[in-house]
Design a protein around this nucleic acid. Structure first.
Lengths: 344, 344
DNA sequence: CGGGCGAATGACTACGTATGCAACAATAAG
DNA sequence: CTTATTGTTGCATACGTAGTCATTCGCCCG
């Protein structure tokens, strides 16, 4: 049905080899031959068979990208950045969500294995098994914002500890003393790092974190909304809440509206990531920014390096990106309690 | 480096054919043989080479999915639905955004051609060239919410005309007589259909559309925000605006907030699609719902049918889904003008 | 007890391309 | 006019697997 390089060769009066070379822009082919081949190929609607190309050249020119759930814009911005960089290098990306693959990660290995030249894990959900199994088969693997005990992975990380510090300082400076925390799954190192530093700073300021104001869950709107409502219905509600990410903060904002609270006046809200939407007027969310785009592009560059021949036993790379505070309107001075400079 | 089926065969003391059959669960292989092969494969970390499989079986078990821009949740919900259905059938999806490929669509053909068994176009941006070229090469193509003159494509459509009617009725019933319209690119049939019906209904009600209240642009937050501000700064601003989609409505809402307008009281806003976010308390957006998930799954089913052998010259399928009104808090009765039942 | 039959497996080839190597033509140098 | 050289092209092969056909073996039935 579909014409092959042999068909093109016959029609153009050259050999199949020449067609192959002409299509790939090999300089050893005369300009006129190249033109003739191109003309015939176009006329017959020839498309090189990717499978055959990959089989022969042992490269699929494709990198697997694993994210937890595209519904969270955090992942979108990462996917976007990766694609930009991969496309520049002539590579394609094969996007996989492990939403359905919650537990074991074996299916993930089957889907990716043998069809990509490398994999970038931006997911924080799937078990550690998938990256380890892939890497042990010689597949280049890069992790974004993800810690795995096993060594040997290239990693791109945002400094979540620093994020926790910046958030704690900001809220404390505004005078908040009762601060709620809605954090992500504590199985993930990034959330543990952030929480640890957040609490450390608060304690240093002399206002240790109140355990009863802690909530944990997935980073979804639903979770933010539910826990925020839960926290604010307490007899002693917090005056500020630090959320797992921006989407969770939107959920919290939603709950606050439903409870008739004015954000910033009655309740300060902080998010994390600084996704595009956080800047929308209606949210105007104070948040901790991590440069998702830069990190994603760096991850793509790292995986391309490994694919390009950088031996697997070369020193694993580790790139850490600083976090920064983005002040907007969702946080404001605490009203109910007097300002009390607790710094030592 | 990576073990092949031959390596497994040697190690397990069987032939390569048997390994192939065992891996694919062929019933003709003894249970014990299958187990032995599976054990060896697992031990050596064998992964079948997808390229070789595809080359031999002439199927990649992959369907290309083309969307304009993942940043719009409308596309996300479609991608999600497609993936659900494809995964059920053991197919994978290869996601491509044609964001960078604005004009010609040839690059798109190169990326998809020869590597997928079928393509679903949910994009409304790229030129008509890509689907036509792919189809002319015998590739099954399904279009979602997209009209192309050329016949022979399976299509899944939402009834945009009906959406326009529902919106016009709703706003008119609320008493609005000065209604703004921020629509999508008029190069797209769906937007033309909707606008035509929208205007027809308004005219029938005796309150023809005021051309000066029409704006057009891409379906982005930015566009909604900009045009809404533009419309509301007029000496005779509209009392309601019907937006191209929900994201545009969010932009409009943003602008309204910035201008100090109260949504629903000072200005009614309607979106289109009913993406998940539209139900968030802070938006509570009245909108026209189209069942993106159902449509996406149907599109997947259609493309799988064609791949499964339904001849290309079989009657092209055409599935039209009804639109429905979802009333929420962003629309309310017009205040400034007296209710005037213009119905005949 | 032998012929035949079915179940299980093995040998072999083709899928469409990339690529090393040989062949060839054209040109330059001797 | 011969030989070396450079630049183009053709030939042949291998990539790893699926599937066709052939083979083996055990078993049932006549």
């Amino acid at each position: 049905m579909a014409p092959t390089s042999r068909d093109i060769a016959r029609e153009a009066g050259v050999s199949q080899s020449t067609v192959s070379r002409a299509m790939r822009g090999d300089a050893r082919v005369t300009v006129e031959t190249r033109h003739r081949v191109a003309e015939v190929a176009d006329r017959l609607g020839y498309m090189p068979n990717r499978s055959a190309q990959s089989l022969k050249s042992r490269r699929s020119q494709t990198v697997g990208v694993v994210v937890a759930d595209l519904r969270n814009p955090y992942f979108l911005e990462i996917v976007d950045g990766i694609q930009d960089e991969l496309n520049l290098a002539g590579y394609r990306s094969f996007l996989v969500t492990d939403r359905l693959d919650f537990g074991r990660g074996t299916e993930l290995v089957d889907v990716l294995g043998g069809s990509v030249d490398g994999v970038i894990f931006a997911s924080s959900r799937s078990a550690d098994e998938a990256p380890i199994r892939l890497a042990s088969r010689g597949m280049p693997v890069v992790l974004i914002n993800r810690e795995i005990e096993r060594q040997g992975f290239d990693r791109v990380l945002s400094d979540y500890g620093m994020g926790g510090i910046l958030a704690a300082r900001h809220l404390h400076e505004l005078g908040h003393r009762r601060i709620g925390l809605i954090t992500g799954p504590s199985s993930l190192a990034v959330f543990r790092d952030r929480e640890r530093e957040f609490r450390r700073v608060l304690a240093e300021f002399g206002t240790p974190f109140d355990e009863r104001l802690r909530r944990e869950g997935l980073y979804t709107h639903q979770v933010g909304s539910q826990w925020c409502a839960d926290l604010m219905r307490r007899p002693d509600p917090p005056t500020a809440i630090f959320c797992a990410d921006d989407v969770v903060a939107f959920g919290a904002l939603d709950a606050a509206l439903q409870l008739g609270l004015r954000v910033s006046d009655d309740l300060s809200l902080m998010g994390y990531d600084d996704i595009e939407m956080a800047a929308w007027e209606m949210f105007s969310l104070t948040t901790i920014r991590q440069p998702m785009g830069d990190m994603a592009r760096e991850a793509a560059r790292l995986v391309l390096q490994r694919i390009g021949g950088l031996a697997m036993d070369e020193e694993p790379q580790r790139r850490v990106y600083a976090a920064s505070l983005v002040r907007r309107a969702s946080t404001g001075p605490a009203k109910t309690e007097p300002l009390d400079d607790g710094s030592t």
